[in-house]
Design a protein around this nucleic acid. Structure first.
Lengths: 251, 251
DNA sequence: GTTCCTATATTTATCATATCTATCTGACTT
DNA sequence: AAGTCAGATAGATATGATAAATATAGGAAC
């Protein structure tokens, strides 16, 4: 399943956005160690020294140090002479970093993570829709419309449902004309990619095209309040589904 | 003014959270180059090669590569053999990285940036307050109350107004019990640190303790809707002030 | 003239080794 | 008990050599 998610997100986003493909030794090592840390492999054991890491992975210390430095930049590690390299608490991880996000999703698929994602989406996306309604350019409005059109096409089997859904939501974020909102593209894409498989399993959720159209119409009409409400309804539905799933999954 | 902001944020957050103090050559270089990129120093000129960078800064290639790798991890650079190292478009910068955030604020103080900050806050914080109302622990609720108490004390000159304000808002984020929301501590702190000086200049904005108390009371009463509204009101006020400032600043 | 291939130069990537610097530990001094 | 010093440890830095990737130009084939 992770493979599939990864395949779809790379369809949406150019591969350049993923820094950590096994392009070379440094990035390969970054990926391996990053994943290990996120899994929790070093939770109760001391993190190896630089020299030991290099030996374990069969690479030079230079490569090791570069990988460690990148993980430090992402908030997973910190290094000091004599003290050694230590794993940072999860609270200081850069959760909006695409690598960290991918490692988290690969780790173990948890409903809790999905809920956290969508608790964030329900804050971000309605407001993004409201901003888009007020200040999106014509081209950006057109992109949102194109996303909706793709969803309609997907309904008829002429497009990928997930990709279309992502395209719509990303277009709304872009329409906000706020660089901070745009940062959430990856997160929203990941959330949708994981939740679509999940919610389909819970309930035969028909892709709610009408709800999406309501958002689009409000944005087109420059009605920011309606846009906010429509988007909020859309994501609240997902949150409710997740909540139900958690309750039924407990016993 | 940047110095002051930095001093206050380091009062709030332990220095460990700031990765890029001039602790050593690598971090010093990271800071210098990162700032240069954000300023736009390389916008129309080719970024130097690894060897050239090392020469310019008087350090070894190893140090240079480590600094470049960290900037790559933060989304500011990308490097490929033969092509060289190139500055990435701003859209791929990791805006929630604390270093990037600091460089952005140091750059030039722009009202636009402040507006973008608060457009994000108006999405995040009301929802965080709503979540906190529903699921914050007793200790977390107490922390929010402590933040409010500090604001009251600051009113009487017994505490720092800004630090108290930040403590309150950060406590609400912590109360959300969602790791993604907690990531915004730095952003909110930076936004408050810059906006407090700014809004004071625009208007004799008395620290709106009553508005903050309304948020706290709602959270304590586990009334998520009221908490959301109260927090939204709080931040909307700031957004309006910024909007007015932009209009008057235009001509 | 256009397309395709290939040689070459350039730049990052990697390795190996030596040395420096920070800092924890414990012994020694006062 | 407090302060000082020496040793040990782990990251930090420097250097020089080599490998791998790839943009570009020049030439071959059509």
């Amino acid at each position: 399943m992770n493979r599939k998610v990864s395949a779809i997100t790379t369809e949406i986003f150019p591969s350049d956005m993923r820094t950590s493909l096994g392009r070379n030794l440094t990035y390969g090592m970054l990926d391996v160690i990053g994943r290990s840390i996120v899994i929790g492999e070093y939770d109760n054991v001391a993190f190896p020294t630089e020299a030991e890491l290099a030996r374990q992975h069969g690479v030079s210390r230079a490569v090791t140090r570069e990988a460690v430095k990148m993980l430090t930049a992402k908030g997973l590690l910190s290094a000091r002479p004599r003290q050694g390299t230590i794993v940072q608490p999860q609270s200081s991880w850069n959760l909006f970093d695409s690598d960290v996000l991918h490692w988290l999703l690969e780790r173990k698929f948890s409903v809790e993570l999905l809920r956290h994602f969508n608790q964030l989406r329900v804050a971000i996306e309605p407001e993004a829709a409201a901003l888009a309604a007020m200040q999106a350019t014509d081209a950006e409005r057109a992109a949102i419309g194109a996303g909706l059109a793709r969803m309609v096409a997907a309904e008829a089997g002429a497009d990928n449902t997930l990709a279309a859904d992502i395209a719509f939501h990303v277009a709304v974020l872009e329409g906000s004309r706020n660089p901070f909102y745009k940062q959430f593209r990856e997160m929203v894409a990941s959330a949708l990619a994981t939740s679509i498989h999940f919610t389909n399993r819970i309930k035969g959720r028909t892709a709610s095209i009408e709800d999406h159209r309501a958002v689009y119409d409000a944005i087109l009409a420059r009605d920011s309040d309606s846009a906010r409400c429509a988007m909020r309804r859309l994501i609240s539905d997902v949150l409710i589904l997740i909540g139900e799933a958690e309750v039924t999954a407990k016993p």
